[in-house]
Design a protein around this nucleic acid. Structure first.
Length: 556
RNA sequence: GGCCCAUUGGUCAAUCGGUUAAGACGCAGCCCUCUCAAGGCUGAAUGAUGGGUUCGAUUCCCGUAUGGGUCACCA
C-alpha cells in the first residue's frame, strides 16, 4: 500500500488535492429533478442523431425540473475541428435545445460544476488517476505502440481475444519497485486501469429503455490517461458524470459494449452509479439494407439540411418526438392546440430497435404544421428563415410585403380548404414563383406550356383568351367570375357542365376545365395551381390583363 | 470471428397470453371539383424461422436466420 502511494506521488508530484477535495468542491446537487447532459465531441456540425440524443436529454431534465447541461468532450485533439463548438451551440439554439448549464458558446460557460470542456479539466482527471494508482487500481504502462501491435497480431493469429489483459498485460505484473524505477528513469508511460474483472463472468445492469442487460465483465486494462496526459472517453465519462452529478447517462447504443468498463471504473473510484439509457441508432434505407445515417452519404444526417431547406424547426422536433415515443402522434391528434412539449416522453416507451429516418413522415408533419399557420405567421417565419438561408426568396417577398401576405393567404385563411402543398419554406421558390413578375417573365421566355390537340388548337386557345379578356371584370365575385368562364366556354363550343360533358364528349371541343386550364396557363404558365380566381385577385387587374394580353401576342 | 442489441405491412408502430392484429406515413381506387393540393370514403399490405411452455402465444423460453453495434493512447 505504502508503495502504491509512493508511486502515485512520484507520478503526480505537484498534485496535492484529493478526490475528497473534489467531492467538496462539486457537492451533490440540491434538486429533485434529473440531471442530464449532452456531451458531443467538437468534430463538426450537429448530427441528426445527436439532435435526437440532445432532445431526449433536454426533455427528461425539463419534465422533472432538473438540469440539462452541455459538455464538450474534446480529449481527442487530433480529431477536433475548428469552430465546431460555435456551430454546435448555434445549431442547438436554433432548435431550441438550450442547456441550463455548461458550455453556452465557444467563449462562455455557465454553472458551478465546470469547467465543462474536458481539455480544461486535466487536473481533475489527474487527481482521480492518482487516487486509483495510490489504491493499486491503476498503473503506469511503459509498452510502446510497436509492442502493442505485435501483441495484437499474435492474438489475432491465435484467434484470441485482442487487447491488453491477463498475460498480455505486461506492465501490470511489474513490481511496484520496478514501476518506480522506470518512472524515475524518465521512461514514457500512459496509465491503465488494473482490471480485476473476469471475462467469463457476467454482470448485469439496468438500461432504462431495454431493461436488464447481461454482459461479460470487463477484464481489459484499458487506458485511462493517454500519452498527451488527457483522459480517454471512459475515464472522463466516469469522472465528469460523477462530479457534475449526472443522474441519467443517456447516449447512443454504441456505448452498450463498454458499459462494463464504466461499471468497473465507477466502482473502483467509489462513485455511485448513474442510471443508464441507450438509444437506438437512427438508420437510413440504403438499397435493400439499413445502415447508420452517414455524415458523408446522407444529406439529412446533418441538422443543417433541415435548416437550409427551410423545414420548420417545430416540424423536425415533432418528427423526432414521434420517433422517441410513437404515442406522440395520437396524443398530438387529441391535443391540437397544446404545445408539443406538454407531451411527456417516457424512456420505457422508447422502441429499442433502430428506426429508419422517414423523410415522408417528416414531410407530412411539416405540411401539417405549415398548413395550420396563418398567412401572417407564415410570412414572418419565411422572412426570418430566408434572410439567413435564401436571399433570393427574401428579396422577392420584400418587393411588396402586402402582396406577399395576400399570396400566402390563398386558400389558407379559410379552415374548410387548407392547402398542404408547402412542405418547407424553400418550396416557395417552386410553387409560388409565378407571382413574381421577374420570375414569371423568365419562365415564359421559352414559351408557354399549352398542350394542343386536334380540337383545341393554337387558334382555339387564342380565341378563348381573347373572349375571356373581353368579358373579364376584376370586380366580379367568385361566382360571377365562374359564370363568365362558363360563358366563354359555351360561346366557343366547350361544354360548361362536367356531367353533361362526360355523357357526350364528342359533341364538344372540350370542357370547362380546359377553358380554365387555358386561362391558368396564360397567367401562371402552370397546369396546376391553387384556385385561379384567387390568384387573379392577388395579382390585381392590371397584371392579369397584361399577362393575358402578352400571351395572346405570343400566340400570334 | 467473440460479445452485445434488435426482428409485427414498404416505413413508423399498438397490443402489458385470449383482438376481426389498432392507428399514422406512403401506395391504389372512388367521390368532391376549374387543375393541383386538401378533404371524404374504400382498398391492398404485417407477427423472420424451427422448437418448446400453456387449454390458448405476436406476446414467455431456447435454437437458427437476418440486420445493426462493438472489440484503439476515437469518442
Amino acid at each position: 500500500m505504502e508503495k502504491y502511494i509512493e508511486l502515485s506521488n512520484l507520478m503526480f508530484p505537484e498534485l496535492n488535492k484529493t478526490v475528497e477535495d473534489l467531492e467538496t468542491k462539486y457537492p451533490k446537487r440540491n434538486i429533485e429533478g434529473s440531471v442530464t447532459r449532452f456531451a458531443p465531441s467538437p468534430t463538426g456540425f450537429l448530427h441528426t442523431g445527436a439532435l435526437f440524443t440532445s432532445l431526449v436529454n433536454k426533455r427528461i431534465a425539463d419534465q422533472t425540473n432538473g438540469i440539462f447541461y452541455l459538455r464538450i468532450e474534446d480529449t481527442d485533439k487530433k480529431r477536433e475541428v475548428d469552430g465546431s463548438v460555435t456551430l454546435l451551440t448555434s445549431e442547438m439554439k436554433k432548435f431550441g435545445i438550450l442547456p441550463n448549464e455548461g458550455v453556452m458558446s465557444d467563449t462562455e460557460e455557465v454553472g458551478e460544476y465546470g469547467p465543462y470542456t474536458q481539455s480544461k479539466r486535466e487536473e481533475i482527471y489527474n487527481i482521480c488517476a492518482k487516487h486509483l494508482i495510490s489504491k493499486g487500481f491503476a498503473y503506469p504502462c511503459f509498452c510502446t505502440n510497436e509492442m502493442l501491435s505485435v501483441t495484437r497480431e499474435m492474438q489475432e493469429k491465435n484467434k484470441q481475444m485482442s487487447g491488453y489483459y491477463g498475460i498480455y498485460a505486461r506492465c501490470r505484473n511489474l513490481s511496484v519497485e520496478e514501476m518506480i524505477e522506470k518512472v524515475k528513469s524518465g521512461e514514457k508511460y500512459i496509465i491503465r486501469l488494473k482490471s480485476s474483472g473476469n471475462h467469463m463472468k457476467k454482470i448485469s445492469f439496468i438500461d432504462m429503455i431495454r431493461g436488464k442487460i447481461d454482459i461479460a465483465e470487463n477484464d481489459q486494462d484499458i487506458v485511462i490517461i493517454k500519452s498527451d496526459n488527457l483522459p480517454t472517453y471512459h475515464f472522463a465519462h466516469v469522472v465528469d458524470d460523477h462530479f457534475m452529478r449526472t443522474t441519467h447517462v443517456m447516449r447512443g447504443e454504441e456505448w452498450i459494449p463498454s458499459v462494463p468498463i464504466h461499471l468497473e471504473l465507477f466502482t473502483k473510484m467509489g462513485f455511485k452509479l448513474p442510471k443508464f439509457a441507450h438509444f437506438p441508432t437512427i438508420m437510413v434505407q440504403d438499397g435493400v439494407s439499413k445502415r447508420k445515417l452517414s455524415k458523408r452519404k446522407d444529406k439529412e444526417a446533418a441538422v443543417s439540411f433541415f435548416l437550409n431547406n427551410g423545414y420548420p424547426i417545430e416540424a423536425v422536433l415533432e418528427y423526432l418526438l414521434s420517433v422517441i415515443n410513437s404515442d406522440y402522434e395520437p396524443w398530438r391528434m387529441k391535443n391540437l392546440d397544446k404545445d408539443m412539449f406538454d407531451f411527456n416522453i417516457r424512456l420505457e416507451k422508447m422502441n429499442s430497435a433502430g428506426a429508419l429516418f422517414d423523410i415522408f413522415k417528416l414531410n407530412d408533419i411539416s405540411k401539417e404544421y405549415i398548413s395550420k399557420l396563418t398567412s401572417k405567421e407564415l410570412l414572418d417565419k419565411i422572412l426570418i428563415w430566408s434572410k439567413e438561408y435564401n436571399q433570393e426568396i427574401f428579396d422577392l417577398l420584400n418587393i411588396d410585403l402586402v402582396f406577399s401576405l395576400k399570396m400566402l393567404g390563398i386558400e389558407r385563411d379559410n379552415v374548410k380548404k387548407i392547402r398542404k402543398d408547402l412542405v418547407k419554406y424553400e418550396d416557395i421558390s417552386t410553387s409560388f414563383i409565378y407571382f413574381f413578375d421577374k420570375k414569371f417573365e423568365e419562365d415564359i421566355r421559352n414559351g408557354y406550356d399549352f398542350e394542343y390537340t386536334d380540337k383545341i388548337t393554337k387558334e382555339v386557345v387564342k380565341q378563348v383568351l381573347s373572349k375571356y379578356l373581353e368579358i373579364y371584370n376584376h370586380n366580379d365575385d367568385k361566382e360571377l367570375w365562374f359564370s363568365r368562364v362558363k360563358l366563354v366556354a359555351s360561346s366557343l363550343g366547350f361544354c360548361s357542365d362536367m356531367k353533361e360533358y362526360k355523357l357526350n364528349p364528342e359533341k364538344y371541343i372540350g370542357n370547362i376545365s380546359d377553358v380554365a386550364g387555358i386561362i391558368r396557363i396564360s397567367i401562371t404558365n402552370r397546369k396546376n395551381t391553387p384556385d385561379i380566381y384567387a390568384i387573379m385577385q392577388v395579382l390585381g387587374e392590371s397584371k392579369v390583363k397584361s399577362r393575358i394580353n402578352n400571351c395572346i401576342n405570343y400566340l400570334i
